[in-house]
Amino acid sequence: MSWLPLLVGLAAPPAYLDPGSGSFLIQLLIAGALGAALAIRMSWSRIKGFFRRKESPPPDSEKHGE
């Protein structure tokens, strides 16, 4: 991650867009749940991927099996 040190001390240019108070605050409200949902979905697909890998033969043997 060679770009990380560049972030340190970087002065952010001012945001020009008005995010809107309501649009800002609702994100605080919903982001936790949406983040959790994403995390669950990702670990679920990881679990499924783990078992699928175990069940199916490795791709190499498929290639040579014909």
């Binding site: 800002f24 605050l25 605080l28 919903i30 982001a31 983040g35 949902a37």
Partner: peptide, 21 residues
């Protein structure tokens, strides 16, 4: 019109929350 100062405040959107959004 409510005042929001979140970046340095206590209420924040985590990185995971942001990605979830």
């Amino acid at each position: 019109g409510a005042e929001v100062r979140t970046a340095q405040g206590t209420r924040r959107v985590s990185r995971t929350g942001f990605l979830g959004l």
